[in-house]
Nucleic acid binder design. Sequence first.
DNA 1: ACATTAAGTGATT
DNA 2: AATCACTTAATGT
Length: 209
Amino acid sequence: MNELANNILHSLGFEPDLIREILTIGRFKKVRESNTAVSPETSGGEVPFVLKGLLKVLRSDPSGHEVFLYYLEKSEACAMSLTCCLEGKKPEYRLVAEQDSELWMIPAGYLDSWIVKYPSFRRFIFLSYQTRFDELLTTIDSITFSNMDDRLYKYLLDTKQATGSYAINKTHEQIARDLDTSRVVISRLMKQLEREGKIEQSRNLIEIL
DNA sequence: ACATTAAGTGATT
DNA sequence: AATCACTTAATGT
């Protein structure tokens, strides 16, 4: 049995019976930094729950374009997979590890019964949606109104929030991929943010001020 | 010293 | 905002 999973599930206030079920039914999965945990190609059917580390959720469209949606932190479950998996659809997102991470993969088939049986689980699921909803809305806004400068700054702030650090170790190239734009565009906007005194940057490093 | 990778910039669409 | 072409700067071998 997984000690770490056990501790986290307890800290969420889950019922002992529920914890026992989750632990016996789920499986452990380790993901190294920059590797993909879930992609549209994977069979799906499992909801990832983060035990350790930090991952990012990217929306994938059929033509292979990907857009960053939000970060997934410790003791969070992926809201995207909840919607996908409940209807037995293939995942339409990609889950990539930002840092070495550990996951507990839960077969989607059990969620229905747990939501009915366990109030704490029901609350957890609703909360997962709730915490993502506003964030997702602002993300959608910034994408549809295509203000790349706002989008970039939001991305930087999200990253600061998720990592708990003002220093971001990313190249313009990597950021461009997350926002589905070109490196040149990011470089220009970064220069602008620097001139506005919002950030400072050197090679492979961005500091939020 | 040389090659490679990251970032800056003007011009064009 | 995207692309091209080129420059400059930082890093690795």
